[in-house]
Design a protein around this nucleic acid. Sequence first.
DNA 1: CGTAGTTTTGAGAGGCGTCAAGGAGCGTGG
DNA 2: CCACGCTCCTTGACGCCTCTCAAAACTACG
Lengths: 239, 239
Amino acid sequence: MDVQSIKVACSSCNLRELCLPVGLNEHELDRLDRVISTRKRVKRGTALFSAGDKFTSLYAVRSGFFKTCVTTADGRDQVTGFQMMGEILGLDGIVQDHHACDAIALEDAEVCVMPFDQVEQLSREFTTLQHHVHKIMSREIVRDHSVMLLLGSMRAEERLAAFLLNLVQRLHARGFSQSELILRMTREEIGSYLGMKLETVSRTFSKFVEEGIIEVKQRYVLIKNTDALRHIVSTPQCR
Amino acid sequence: MDVQSIKVACSSCNLRELCLPVGLNEHELDRLDRVISTRKRVKRGTALFSAGDKFTSLYAVRSGFFKTCVTTADGRDQVTGFQMMGEILGLDGIVQDHHACDAIALEDAEVCVMPFDQVEQLSREFTTLQHHVHKIMSREIVRDHSVMLLLGSMRAEERLAAFLLNLVQRLHARGFSQSELILRMTREEIGSYLGMKLETVSRTFSKFVEEGIIEVKQRYVLIKNTDALRHIVSTPQCR
DNA sequence: CGTAGTTTTGAGAGGCGTCAAGGAGCGTGG
DNA sequence: CCACGCTCCTTGACGCCTCTCAAAACTACG
């Protein structure tokens, strides 16, 4: 794997309000620092881990952008999520001791490596951390359920609107604009995530542009009318 | 809530190989017994918990059958899962301290109540239990991802075939037939779970019957050709 | 035995997939 | 610096799968 290790400290990380250290006190943070002692760089287009790999660690995205995707024997595949800084990767590996999906960097990225046995050990000592780990997993479950809602009951326009709103909302929580964003993924990857073909994604973008809701220039998207997007999401279009 | 409490012991439960106690030794099992001291009965059609309810406990299904579903403000709703005996309900509540979905009994049911703070406390003492809790949550995440694959990239026939295979497989693991089953849910609920309309569910059942793959009499289903179902699932029909 | 809920089946419509062609952006090499 | 090729994106035309609307049959239950 084309990755390299470097020293790092959670206590001085500007993502500590978003990442694993949420709510830990100084002593706990200090102990966590010793567990999360390495980072890995992942080059654009390469895998942090792949389905079938032995599970050893969780990873916190420090910079860059990832997609996770599951693949079936017959070559079908589905993007199950996009992860940005402060978000956790690898939870899928716990149950089988092997990863169940691929995690691929969509741009050069850096992750903090958190050996899972050490996370578990520390969780036994610190209630705060234990509960936080549980929350992270629960959050992923709730998120997945909302994606199931999207895939199961929304039409193309609603899906794309919901997708854009979710992306800017997460970016905004990280200090970025709430109306501008750069898509790190292709139309095809968006389509896979949203259960539609890339042509439909493209057409739907065009439709939003025609209606004056957004501006699009390749990967750059400007949201001109957030309320219109919200309205599209929250108004079942007959179906 | 029309439920009542009764005494119970994991150590004598015939689901202990499927449920939370998996892998615990005698001493640990004994301690767990004291935590899981009550059961609740849930009548058909009523909710074990609803979205917004305060989260206090996880629930292990002891008998009966549940569905979980998320509902949006605009009245859309999506069945996110069906739970049978030995399976755990309530993981969605951890992250917000309130439940994010409804859990509704599809037939008269009985669940074991596991106060979550006590589960966490015991997890800090017993590595085995801690790891098992993590596995349960990870399994749910992996399951959700496979549902996303289903919703995002399969057509009606593939979805229904995958659904039937999954159901009998789980029933078989619980000692039931691997070729016969009684559906506990309506066509509409199946449709909601699979992202299709009830009419399409019904038509797809009829198609399978015509092809001699299954027999259907209302809620009763006999699988006459498991391989044919597997073939349908694993063969992308162009899309 | 009537009524409500569930399921089946048909006919028609439309949203999205499929196939195809062309254009735009970007890195590479001459 | 420009040509070239590659990948990604856009747009059009057409067809099909699934939704929608509707009606009837069946089951369950009071």
